[in-house]
Amino acid sequence: EEKRQVKQVAKEKLLEQSPNSKVQVRRVQKQGNTIRVELELRTNGKKENYTVEVERQGNTWTVKRITRT
């Protein structure tokens, strides 16, 4: 359940930055209360990979860091 929520948060964050792209989740890793989500962003056939680190704060998820990989 929490992985599902985190995927959603990570996707939304990337789509905010580039709204007309397609996002696909590649991998989800958990480390303590930080969850790392690896995503693939496609814009006009151009692929970019991103890693989004999401942290739990109380009962909400906040995006800590977005890295292009």
Rank of each mutant, 00 (worst) to 15 (best):
V9T: 05
I66C: 03
R36M: 14
R68F: 08
T69R: 11
V54E: 00
K11V: 15
E2Y: 04
Q57C: 07
K64S: 12
E12K: 12
K47E: 05
V52N: 00
P19A: 03
E55K: 05
T60D: 11
A10E: 01
L41A: 08
K22I: 13
Q5W: 08
E38T: 13
N33E: 09
K46I: 13
P19G: 03
R42V: 14
E55I: 13
K30V: 15
G45L: 06
E1H: 08
P19C: 04
R42A: 07
T69V: 11
S21V: 05
I66R: 00
R27L: 07
I35A: 10
K64M: 15
K46N: 11
T51S: 09
I66L: 05
T67W: 15
T43Q: 12
N59G: 13
T34F: 10
T34A: 08
N20W: 02
T60M: 13
V54P: 00
T51W: 12
L15T: 04
N59D: 13
T62P: 01
V23F: 02
R26S: 06
K7Q: 14
K11A: 10
T51N: 04
N59K: 10
Q24M: 15
Q31V: 14
R4G: 06
R68K: 12
E16D: 05
T43R: 06
K64F: 09
T34R: 09
K30I: 15
E38Q: 11
W61G: 01
E38N: 07
L15E: 04
Q5D: 09
E53Y: 14
T60P: 01
Y50G: 00
N49P: 03
T43W: 09
K64T: 14
K64N: 07
K3M: 15
E48Q: 09
L41Y: 02
I66E: 00
K7G: 15
S21P: 02
Q17Y: 13
Q57G: 05
R26Y: 07
E2F: 05
I35K: 01
G58Q: 06
E12Q: 13
A10H: 01
G32M: 04
G32N: 05
T34P: 02
R56W: 14
V25Q: 01
E12L: 06
V63L: 04
Q57V: 14
K3L: 15
V63N: 00
T51G: 02
V63G: 00
Q17A: 09
L39R: 00
T34N: 07
R65A: 14
N44V: 07
I35T: 11
V37G: 00
K3D: 15
L14I: 10
T43A: 10
S18N: 15
K47I: 14
K3P: 04
N44H: 11
I66H: 01
E38F: 15
E53Q: 06
V52C: 03
R42W: 15
E2S: 07
Y50S: 00
V25K: 01
V25E: 01
N44C: 07
V23P: 03
E1C: 09
T62H: 12
Q31C: 11
L39V: 10
E40Q: 11
K11M: 15
P19E: 02
Q8N: 08
Q29V: 13
V54T: 02
R27V: 04
G32F: 06
K30D: 11
R27N: 08
P19V: 03
K22S: 11
E55A: 06
T67I: 13
V54W: 03
Q8W: 02
E38V: 11
N20I: 04
R65H: 08
T62V: 14
V25P: 02
L15H: 04
T60L: 08
V63K: 00
R4T: 09
R4W: 10
P19R: 03
Q24T: 14
P19Q: 03
T62K: 12
L15G: 02
K47Q: 09
L15D: 02
T51R: 06
K13V: 13
Q5E: 10
E55H: 08
E2G: 05
N44E: 12
L15M: 09
T51Y: 10
R27I: 05
V25D: 00
R56P: 04
Q29T: 15
E55T: 09
S18R: 10
T69K: 09
G45C: 05
N59Y: 11
Q5F: 11
R4L: 08
L39K: 00
L41F: 03
R26K: 13
T60R: 12
G45H: 07
R4D: 12
Q17N: 09
V23R: 01
E1N: 06
R27E: 03
V25W: 03
T51L: 12
T51A: 07
V37N: 00
V9N: 02
K30L: 13
R42T: 15
Q5M: 13
V6F: 04
N59Q: 10
R56Q: 07
R36Q: 10
N33M: 10
L41T: 06
E40A: 07
G32W: 05
N44P: 06
N20A: 09
E48P: 00
K30C: 08
Q17V: 12
N33P: 08
E16P: 02
K64H: 05
K7E: 15
Y50N: 00
Q17W: 08
K30M: 15
I35S: 06
E55L: 07
L14C: 05
E1R: 05
V54Q: 00
T69C: 07
T62G: 07
E40N: 05
G32K: 05
R26M: 13
P19D: 02
N44Q: 09
R65N: 10
R56A: 06
K7D: 05
V28T: 05
E16C: 05
Q5T: 12
E55Y: 12
V6A: 15
R56N: 04
A10R: 01
W61T: 02
P19K: 04
E38P: 00
K46E: 07
E1T: 06
K46Y: 12
E53V: 12
E12T: 08
Q24P: 00
A10M: 03
L15I: 04
R4K: 12
T43S: 11
V28G: 01
K64R: 12
E55S: 08
